[in-house]
């Protein structure tokens, strides 16, 4: 049963509306939006940002903010790749994912210790660890681009199916890594909705003191979040390496702000407690469709940043205005945050 009044207060419908408008614009401009291969291309481009955004959303819902996930992903991926190359590994790709997840988990545990156990502020901690992990990767490991082991290369070439564009005869492959995204979505959906741990994440984001009194193990939940998000970042790093068939250590860095923006755009409350996977995926989809359709819309390359900036400003402006607007006229406004 859909409660219309409740729906109107959420931001998902607005983001969805924005996506529909954008899609129509692309379709009108290029006649290429609703083609099988374009949709597959977009899905493919979404995989890495979407995986990151799931973790970012969990952290924001719990009342924190994490900017270290690109650094964790890069270091975990790079370390795994180097180790496997050194031993001339040629076995199953699952080991690579497991190793990357393990490294990610270990780095997440550092965040977890500082944030969960020592109760330090999340933004400051993750800025610090982000710097730390990047430095370790580039300094101690002297990271530079390197190839990936053969099994990962083979994994990178796997495809689920090939979509064909009937107009132009173009084909695009759906990479098998999308299964990892779908798996992660399902896992996190079940976790957030059907486990006490997941409800605990929402509970501490809503009111940490109340969560403690109610009997949630607040420290435990936080430690879990940062470890889990770290492990997921590690897997994401491996996904990117296998999709690119190349281990590039710095190529993920700098994504944090865009991912967080997508999550917030998707209706996750910056101060914690509220946020849905649906909204997050819509937010990511909007950002990805936008950045991957500028040529299709016909925006000249020199104008892409102006256009992207304008869309972010207008998009968030409309959402913020919608959320903040009450019927009454204020004599003077301004909130500060």
């Amino acid at each position: 049963m859909i409660n219309m009044r409740r729906m109107a207060k959420r931001s998902e419908p607005y983001v969805f509306g924005a996506i529909v408008l954008l899609c129509l614009l692309i379709q009108v401009q290029s006649k290429q939006f609703f083609t099988g291969n374009n949709l597959v291309d977009l899905a493919r481009s979404m995989i890495v940002p979407a995986l990151f955004s799931i973790g970012a959303m969990m952290v924001i819902v719990s009342g924190g903010i994490d900017v270290s996930f690109p650094a964790i992903a890069s270091l975990a991926m790079y370390a795994t790749d180097r180790i496997l190359l050194n031993v001339n590994y040629s076995g199953n790709v699952m080991l690579a994912y497991a190793m990357a997840a393990g490294f990610g988990l270990a780095m997440g545990a550092v965040n977890a210790l500082l944030i969960g156990v020592l109760r330090l502020p999340t933004l400051v901690v993750t800025l610090g660890t982000s710097s730390l992990f990047t430095g370790i990767m580039q300094g101690a490991l002297a990271a530079s681009e390197s190839p990936v082991p053969p099994s990962i290369l083979a994994h990178g070439k796997e495809k689920l199916f090939t979509a064909t564009n009937t107009q132009l005869g173009l084909t695009s492959d759906m990479p098998s890594q999308i299964l990892i995204l779908l798996g992660a979505l399902l896992l996190v959906f079940l976790l957030l909705r059907y486990t006490m741990l997941g409800r605990g994440i929402y509970a501490i984001g809503g009111d940490e003191a109340a969560a403690r009194r109610a009997g949630f193990n607040v420290v435990g939940v936080k430690v879990f979040i940062y470890c889990f998000v770290g492990a997921m970042a590690g897997v994401t790093g491996m996904v990117r390496a296998s999709m690119m068939m190349n281990a590039h250590p710095t190529n993920l860095l700098g994504m944090e702000m865009t991912v967080i923006a997508a999550v917030v755009l998707g209706g996750t409350r910056v101060t914690g407690g509220l946020g849905t996977l649906t909204g997050t995926m819509l937010g990511v989809a909007l950002m990805i469709i936008l950045s991957n359709s500028l040529i299709l819309i016909g925006i000249p390359t020199y104008w892409t940043r102006v256009f992207t900036g304008a869309v972010i400003i207008i998009g968030t402006g409309v959402t913020a205005w919608q959320a903040g607007g009450s019927g009454r006229r204020l004599a003077s406004s301004g909130t500060g945050l």
Binding site: M196, R199, Y202, A203, G205, G206, D207, A209, A210, A211, R213, A214, G215, F216, R269, G272, G273, L274
Partner: peptide
Amino acid sequence: YQDFSVFPNLTVMENLALNMEL
């Protein structure tokens, strides 16, 4: 408690039942 220890972001039924479940 004075602040009721409720979770503002959760639904009425969750607020009522989570403690029992815990």
